[in-house]
Design a protein around this nucleic acid. Sequence first.
RNA 1: GCCUAGGUGGUGGAACUGGUAGACACGCAGGACUUAAAAUCCUGUUCCCGUUAAGGGAGUGCGGGUUCGAUUCCCGCCCUAGGUACCA
Length: 926
Amino acid sequence: MEYNHRSLEKKWQQFWAENGTFRPAETTDKPKYYVLDMFPYPSGAGLHVGHPLGYIASDIFARYKRLKGFNVLHPMGYDSFGLPAEQYAIQTGQHPSVTTEVNIKRYREQLDNIGFSYDWSREVRTSEPDYYKWTQWIFMQLFHAWYNKEADKSESIDSLTNRFETSGSEGIYAVCDEDVLTFTATEWNSFSVEEQQRELLKYRLAYLRESTVNWCAALGTVLANDEVINGVSERGGYPVEQKKMMQWSMRITAYADRLLRGLDTVDWPEPLVEMQRNWIGKSVGASVKFLLPQLNDIEVFTTRVDTIFGVSFIVLAPEHELVDALTTDKQRVEIEGYKEKTAKKSELDRMADTKTVSGAFTGSYAKHPLTGADVPIWIADYVLAGYGTGAVMAVPSGDQRDYVFAKHFNLPIIPISDAQNIEEDADPTKEGRYINSDFINGMTYEEAVPALIKRLEGLGLGKAKINYRMRDAIFGRQRYWGEPVPVFFKNGLPYLIDEKELPLLLPEVDKYLPTETGEPPLGRADGWKYQGKYEYELSTMPGWAGSSWYWFRYMDPTNDESFASKEAVDYWKAVDLYIGGSEHATGHLLYSRFWNKVLKDLGYHNEEEPFKKLINQGMIQGRSNFVYRVLDEEGKGTNVFVSYGLKDQYHTVPLHVDVNIVYNDVLDTEKFKAFRPDFVNAKFVLENGKYICGTEVEKMSKSKFNVVNPDDIIETYGADTLRLYEMFLGPLEQSKPWNTNGIEGVYKFLRKVWRLFHDAEGNLFISDDEPTKSEYKALHKIIKKVEEDIERFSFNTSVSAFMICVNELSDLKCNKRKILQDLIIVLEPYAPHITEELWALLGNEAGTISYAPYPVFRSEYLVESEFAYPVSVNGKMKMNLSLALDLDAKVVEEIILSNADVQRYLDGKIVKKVVFVRGKIINIVV
RNA sequence: GCCUAGGUGGUGGAACUGGUAGACACGCAGGACUUAAAAUCCUGUUCCCGUUAAGGGAGUGCGGGUUCGAUUCCCGCCCUAGGUACCA
């Protein structure tokens, strides 16, 4: 029998599906292991060859863990709410659920073709009511919670109302809005229900507040900060403006520090951890008050309180609330003009234009908190209203922006350290000792900071403070295709619907566009009112809602009583291995950690972090192929195409050509003629009898004809080849262009494996004889190597090792059962179909290879006369050798005499052994 | 600017804690089998010098350093990719 991947792979995929081979055990003594992929958004374009890279890696790991005796949970599902389906609905009128269903079906077919070991009985879809019921339920928990800073955790809002009722707002230490009221218990109890609710909203983790949002007019919705890239929307690239709106938000800032600390406890790639750290943006510093005689003092945030005696002016953001009051009549015109100018600048301009120095003087002065000196107050757009207090103390000698500003407007630049060099630029050094700095003169940085904080605190004019860059996450979207927010409005205030009424189903609408009055699409739903009279919230949840807890649902996907049973959550705990792209660093991965922590605080599970280990797979880019069309004298395209190497001899224009009709950069000229009608009569200028195409690495896209569908590869070479080849392509984390240049080698390897089991006629040919030493050696080398490789996610090197092993066994003409059976167990994670087939051919029960024990590597098979051990000479030389030889003294002398370096190092010691490789001495034992 | 990752043959890439640089694969060249093709197998393939060979020299982005020994460690620079930015 020949290796027929087509029939063989279909057969086993069907077998696995019918037998539920990959369902984890319900009751077992085995340790658990949870391997998760970032679930995909099912887009209309289907999977391309880049998508499965991470899925293959996680599947290999999941299968490996099964062989290692773990009870493995390895599920898959769909993040099926999202913008593209809705945009498509707007254009075609097609209900998003219909498009989504079609796309999911296609995804499923493509995924099935690759032979993943998913437990499909646990599939989830975020757009299904029995799933989003629990997304809504979690929202309700967030609405019903507040963050108690004393306990450093979220608690039920009831604990807050209890305290309000008994002792008022006294002693409450919460993460909340800035404008919370101070009241006694008596006052609280005398508040109306509306007043109480209004106040509680300022504490809730999910809250409604007027805030500045990123409004994208083209998409008709607000966007979260991570959905805005360089001032335009991540999806579609439309302009985004700042707008004040009533919006649902999530108090993720309450968790800023825990999100930061948690990063030290997880095994994540360093770049990703760094990205989250930067996004959270913790700054340790101090807040300091500059005094104003009549008005509220100006509070500034600084990370360099030690430079406070170098302050020569104060800068407010143009939007700062005190600007109007501070502006003197004389400066009024100038300030108004500047404010207007800034308001006109878009976010994008303001970011792009960081070179020009601009600002205006308000005419007022504030008193320095320590010296009492008058400090002029300016406004400038380099100070951002949204960060810190929107005001900074300017220290030109220590901060480059302040320096440039001071030079431009002729303001004093005061040196504050004897180590500073401020001839050309500001010098932010912390070296040296302070000068011109009052009572900290002569101190070092380490001495000055605590001294200053102490002094400022004593005066009540400042304190140590920590600032975060991260903002609360906007939670509402003015769109149709998302989870409805389970909230209704009474007297303009939001209330949760009754939990028993979940899920709050997404209503039908006639069009997927905003209403005439500018309300979100849900405003079109006929008679959609709570208890027939109260308005529902009309915005829906953002895309990240459903994906922020989905790993829990896989643990117990059909539970109707809770998001997952206590037993399931206690058993599966957290995701042990999570594989996905780094593009989710500041979105999904941050929000998921946030919700996970909230659910933990509220007592639903015990895991502080949801994803223990995380791997980012690299992107697979497209590799476009080009043909070169010869142009005539008028510059018009002819029907003559010249091969890449000869194109410089002609006047040509490059054209994208479908990569599916190019093999190893050689064009199939017949298929090319059929590629487009006008190419029917194409003529070719060949080199060496071939048409060679040019190449370029670009993003995979339909318009560039460089999309490779995994189904096509599988049709030609099979799923096992695709799996092995995607791993063989290079390190998992690395981005790389797709090419099929080496796929033949992998396919050849699998056929070689097949042939090990068969004789020349294609009949099964297995011997039960005892294997030879070299056969054992080849086997145990691969057992050891693959185990090491998988544990450190170096899948590409495993593939090479397999090739070496099979070449060796093939050279040895090895057909011993004892060898081959173990070999295919080790190969199973990489190439499950062929191994399953061979496993059955050896007479084993079908399906059991997936749970066969991973062979134990035995070192005695590897040890020969070739030793590997470290040695040292004079306590200096330390080395590890792969090849060592004992020599008699005579030979040693000869070799040593010929090598001056070695002789120098011998230092009169007695030589016991000389190690040399290919005639070169590389070690001496004395 | 800052942060992070990386730079190795014609190509993808190996070399895990400093110890034979270029494993493995592709491609290319030559050969065997075959009427022929496919398939399979064998040999060679970093570059330069050496007519062949024996042999010699250089070589992991560049320049230094530590070391008997550096792709690996240290210092300075250049380039590429990703992230981020008037964040005080």
